[in-house]
Design a protein around this nucleic acid. Structure first.
Length: 330
DNA sequence: GGTAGACCTGGACGC
DNA sequence: GCGTCCAGGTCTACC
């Protein structure tokens, strides 16, 4: 039995801490909207298939705290914690959960997406799951570059086990920028097995910790997509694919994140042929009509393919998905 | 601006 | 059990 399962069961039995009620938009569906992007199966996230709840440890200044999030019959969300939170921590927890579940995506934006791409209107898909912080999203993206998916899964597990903080219920947090900025590169390479990404991760952590990455500017609708993308390309370990992926994690879906999986999807599902460069050109033309929502259209197409092979994503067991996630393995 | 090769890990494969 | 090959995106040097 995995440590995560032990944690969830032990935690469910106690529930000794704070409980927060978080209002969700009427069109929000926890199972659909959590199980919408691969990061939901990466530690410290844990989707409990039986209870249809999301659990993970959230980071706060003084100490981390594990929480379990589920959706009530009235549509609202309930977040239960393993210790009592201060008022400031409760506010931080709300902000982290809102970011993670994309609760700030408005009905107008969703309607605009479904108007451009009506294929997803019936299912209501529009939101993409992400991390509670941009820092975690950036590091997770770096762990997904130049490796097969099972390796990404292992890197994230080890990062939490080696560098994360332990909550009172025994589960580990994702390391904060402050913690990772002070971690030796030898530790990252030797114990977390991140390979040549070690120095780049520490450099990114230092930039976040020093405030050199302005998340407010990156998230500001007044900031042009091209400017945000150009800035991301200047970050260590971030190339065109990673920058494109971080863009969508910022809620900017006007461009694609093209990797080998995209090429495989284009060949196997869209039926394209030719060199990778020719296929890339066709892919860009294919998604061009979806304007500011290109990534969503692309991603839900890919996700639909995964679900056609592996069943609805809200039934995927994390440990099983860890080894069979990419189209190459399905 | 385009391209080749190095960077690392882990899985697959052959012996 | 061991050695070899390969996949994967970014970075740097070079043309």
């Amino acid at each position: 039995m995995s440590p995560a399962r032990l944690f969830v069961r032990a935690y469910d039995a106690r529930m000794p801490g704070s409980t927060l009620k978080i209002d969700a938009p009427r069109d929000f569906d926890l199972a659909r909207d959590v199980c919408s992007y691969g990061y939901f199966v990466l530690v410290p996230n844990y989707w409990d298939v039986n209870n249809q709840s999301l659990s993970r440890v959230l980071e706060f200044d003084d100490a981390p705290s594990a929480c379990v999030i589920d959706q009530r019959d009235d549509g609202s969300l309930r977040a239960r914690f393993d210790r009592k939170l201060t008022r400031e921590e409760q506010q931080s927890a709300r902000e982290q959960i809102i970011r993670m579940l994309s609760l700030d995506l408005t009905s107008e934006e969703i309607r605009a997406f479904h108007k451009l791409d009506p294929r997803w209107k019936k299912s209501g898909r529009a939101r993409l799951f992400r991390s509670p912080t941009l820092f975690e999203d950036v590091i997770k993206t770096v762990t997904s570059c130049n490796v097969a998916w099972p390796n990404t899964v292992n890197m994230n597990r080890r990062l939490c086990e080696v560098c994360g903080r332990k909550s009172v219920s025994g589960a580990y947090s994702f390391p904060s920028a402050k913690k990772l900025s002070r971690t030796r590169v030898g530790t990252l390479r030797g114990r977390c097995r991140v390979g040549y990404r070690d120095q780049r991760m520490v450099d990114l952590a230092k930039m976040f910790h020093r405030g050199e990455i302005d998340e407010a500017w990156l998230s500001d609708p007044d900031t042009h997509d091209d400017d945000a993308f150009a800035f991301l390309l200047t970050l260590p370990g971030i190339g065109p694919y990673a920058a494109g992926n971080i863009m969508q994690l910022l809620g900017r879906c006007s461009r694609l994140a093209i990797d080998t999986e995209t090429i495989r999807h284009a060949k196997n599902v869209l039926g394209y042929s030719g060199t990778d460069a020719q296929i890339t050109k066709k892919i860009k033309a294919h998604y061009e009509p979806f304007g500011d929502h290109k990534f969503r259209s692309y991603w839900f197409e890919l996700w639909q393919f995964y679900e056609s092979k592996a069943g609805p994503s809200h039934t995927w067991e994390r440990d099983q998905v860890s080894t069979t996630f990419t189209a190459a393995n399905l």
